[in-house]
Nucleic acid binder design. Structure first.
Lengths: 118, 118
DNA sequence: CCTGAACCTGACGTCAACGTGAGGTACTAG
DNA sequence: CTAGTACCTCACGTTGACGTCAGGTTCAGG
C-alpha cells in the first residue's frame, strides 16, 4: 500500500505519515523508485499512534513504548513509564471531568435563567 | 495583592498572569507606580482559567465564555458554544478512557509475562 | 539615601505536530 | 510516448501558552 492510500484509510495526512517515519514511529519499505510501501498492519499501527497522541503522549514517549505495546514485552523501566503515563491519563480524565461538570452547571444555570425569562 | 503573590497562591507563573491580562482574561488595577494590583477574587478567577485551559479550551474561547461562567447570563450563541465545548470535553474523556484502557491492558500483559518469567 | 527584591514593558525564543510551498521524480492509463 | 496524478526531499511557516533576556522603574527596610 502506498502512502496516499494509507493516509485515506487512516484519516491522517500524508505529511503526518512522513513525520511518523521521521520520528521512527512507523517504518516502510521502498519501491525501486524510492516510494514508500506499507504492509496492511501499518493501518493498525497508525491508529495506535493516533490513540496515544490523542492521549497526550509525546512522540518521544510513544517511540519508547511502542515496542512493548505491540509485543507485550517490556523492561522494568518501560513498565514504570507505562504506569506513569496511565496515571497521567487518569489524572487528566479527572481534570476534564471537573471542567465538564463545571460547564454543565453553567449550562444548567443559564438554561434555567432563560426559561425563567420566557 | 501584587502579581508575585497571586502567582505563588495560584501556582501559575508571573508571565502567565501577564499573558492572561494581555488576552483579556484577567483584569488588574494599577498602583500609582504602575504595578498590578489584584483583588482576592482574582485567585478564583485564575483557577477557573486554568481549569478551562486544562480542558483544552483556547484563550479565545475562554474570553468569550468567562462572562457567562461568572455571571450565569448568556446569549443563545454563548449557550451553543458552552454546549459545544462540554461535548468536546466529553468526547475527549472517551478518547482518554480508551487510551487508558489500552495502556492498562498492556501493563497487565507485561506484568503477567514478567511474573511468568520469574 | 540606598540597596536589593519585586515589578514593568517590549520583544525574541521554544516546542510539538504537523501545514505548505518549491522543485523534481515515479507510476499508470491511453 | 505522453499526460496527469501521486510521490519524493528539503526547508521554512504556523499556533498557543507561555519562557527568557534586556534594560529600566518601583517599593520596603534600615
Amino acid at each position: 500500500m502506498r502512502i496516499g492510500q494509507l493516509a485515506r484509510r487512516s484519516g491522517v495526512s500524508v505529511r503526518a505519515l512522513r513525520y511518523y517515519e521521521e520520528q521512527r514511529l512507523l517504518e516502510s519499505t521502498r519501491t525501486p523508485g524510492g516510494q514508500r510501501d506499507y504492509p496492511d498492519e501499518a493501518l493498525e499501527r497508525v491508529q495506535l499512534i493516533q490513540d496515544l497522541f490523542a492521549a497526550g503522549l509525546s512522540s518521544r514517549t510513544v517511540v519508547e513504548l511502542l515496542p512493548c505495546v505491540s509485543t507485550g514485552v517490556a523492561t522494568p523501566a518501560m513498565l514504570d513509564q507505562l504506569i506513569i503515563e496511565r496515571d497521567r491519563i487518569a489524572a487528566r480524565i479527572q481534570d476534564l471531568t471537573r471542567a465538564k461538570t463545571k460547564l454543565g452547571r453553567v449550562i444548567e444555570n443559564v438554561t434555567a435563567a432563560n426559561v425563567a425569562q420566557d
